[in-house]
């Protein structure tokens, strides 16, 4: 004989989880203890009743609100953005040819600070619905003149219609303190699926973007 029977053995017997040898030991035990056998028989009938009451799985097609794909699509624009934000912002900022002087000379550390700033602005404003931008694209001339003046560089919003994105508008962001880079401009684009892309434009120049080297003369 092996180890003494426990309550767990009795439950496992009822739930059909015992290896045959052990189950035989339980049966032998129950044959000698009719009180316990009656209790265990009742447990078995409880199991049958529970399964009879609830077990049939619904074979109907799932209602729309319980289907993962539509749920994911509904949550989609909200949930994909945090992951894509960094990539989108950096790619556009680096690739957009938007008057970012000397970008090739940026040191990695400095560009990382800049990117962190761009990502923070992106994350903050893409969630906004009615206040996503300060000046809407309907007022495009004013937007371009205003931002160009404030960051002291000509701002030309890139045309992303080929990618399915149209300009929503833009806003001015405070400067990057440690580097005295001056204010930055944020342009926001949106596609038909309400996904948003932002372009972060700064007049930062390499000399101004070396935070641990403040003694370097500004360009």
């Amino acid at each position: 004989m092996s180890t003494p029977l426990t309550d767990t053995d009795l439950h496992a017997f009822v739930d059909g989880r015992l290896p045959p040898g052990r189950a035989a030991e339980v049966e032998a035990f129950l044959a000698r203890h009719p009180e316990k056998a009656a209790e265990i028989a009742h447990w078995q009938r409880q199991n049958e009743a529970i399964n009879a009451l609830f077990a049939p799985l619904d074979s109907q097609p799932l209602p729309e609100r319980l289907r993962p794909r539509p749920i994911a699509a509904r949550l989609g624009s909200r949930l994909r953005w945090p992951q894509l934000a960094a990539a989108a912002t950096v790619l556009l900022a680096l690739g957009g040819a938007i008057g970012w002087a000397g970008r090739d000379l940026l040191r990695p550390a400095a560009s990382e600070l800049l990117i962190a700033d761009a990502v923070a602005a992106h994350a903050l404003y893409v969630k906004e619905n009615r206040h996503a931008v300060e000046v809407a694209a309907t007022d495009r001339d004013h937007l371009v003149t205003w931002l160009s003046n404030r960051i002291d560089r000509p701002v030309t919003p890139p045309d992303l219609t080929a990618e399915g994105f149209s300009l929503v508008g833009g806003r001015l962001l405070p400067g990057y303190e440690q580097t005295e880079a001056g204010p930055a401009a944020l342009l926001m684009y949106e596609n038909a699926a309400a996904e948003r892309v932002t372009v972060y434009i700064t007049a930062a120049s390499p000399g101004k973007l070396q935070p641990d080297n403040s003694s370097t003369a500004p360009a």
């Binding site: 309550d7 767990t8 439950h11 129950l30 044959a31 009719p34 009180e35 056998a37 009656a38 209790e39 265990i40 028989a41 009742h42 447990w43 078995q44 409880q46």
Partner: peptide, 26 residues
Amino acid sequence: LMSRLGRARSALRSLTGGSDEPRLRS
């Protein structure tokens, strides 16, 4: 878990009058 299972099964037995049943062997 095992003790909750045990208490649930005892409770169901007394709530469904199982303890008054004739003794039955499975």
